[in-house]
């Protein structure tokens, strides 16, 4: 039940875009069309779902204070947590590269859809943000971490598809000239964030 709760929380309540503004750069740059929005969103779900559990294992069996105890008693006091930034980003960059190669080899159709977005994702804040939130919130099992990763990925996906659909329509309306493009997108995102806050307090 807790796992499901974390999943729903990641989608609606602790939405990466509306509550923490993570991945805003690509969110604003790639949300002009619904089709590209879906592509990038799917890639984010995919990469978050893979990297969060891997970083979870790394955190709990290598980096955390006392995490190296499985190697022997003399390692029980080693604390490598200051290395976590560099480890997480290295894992993310290499996993993205690896996923790109695997997808290209075994699922060319999927690669056609996600291909150009995968390299963008290594520097998407939401991916590293997922890893860092996982570290901060100290989930108790790898399943919780996975459901958090997939859940917040889906939340990000929903957000980018919604804003892309709105931006497609807003082309035809009379926005004040200085507000056109970026300005109105910011304000709409803000209003959507307020709407998303009504999900607060949902518990399964």
């Amino acid at each position: 039940m807790e796992t499901l709760n974390i999943f729903v929380k990641g989608i609606f309540i602790e939405n990466m875009i509306f509550a923490y503004f993570l991945g805003m750069c690509s969110f604003l740059a790639v949300s002009k069309k619904v089709k590209t929005g879906i592509g990038l969103g799917a890639a984010v779900v995919f990469v978050l779902g893979i990297t969060v559990p891997i970083n979870y294992l790394l955190e709990n069996y290598v980096l955390k204070e006392g995490a190296l105890a499985w190697m022997g008693a003399e390692y029980a006091t080693v604390d490598l947590s200051f290395l976590s930034f560099i480890m997480f980003i290295a894992v993310i960059a290499s996993i993205v590269q690896l996923v790109e190669m695997i997808v290209e080899k075994f699922a060319p159709a999927l690669y056609g859809a996600l291909g150009i977005f995968l390299p963008l994702i290594a520097v998407n804040c939401s991916i590293l943000g997922g890893a860092l939130f996982m570290q901060e919130r100290q989930y108790t099992s790898v399943w919780d971490a996975t459901s958090f990763g997939v859940g917040s990925g889906i939340g990000w996906f929903l957000a980018i598809v919604a804003i892309a659909a709105i931006r497609e329509r807003i082309k035809y309306s009379h926005v004040p000239a200085p507000l056109r493009g970026l300005g109105i997108t910011f304000i709409i995102t803000g209003l959507m964030g307020i709407a998303f806050m009504s999900f607060m307090g949902i518990n399964i």
């Binding site: 509550a19 507000l179 109105i184 910011f186 995102t189 803000g190 964030g193």
Partner: peptide, 9 residues
């Protein structure tokens, strides 16, 4: 949080 976006807008 959402109000920060509106202010930047």
């Amino acid at each position: 949080p959402p109000m920060a976006l509106v202010i930047v807008g």
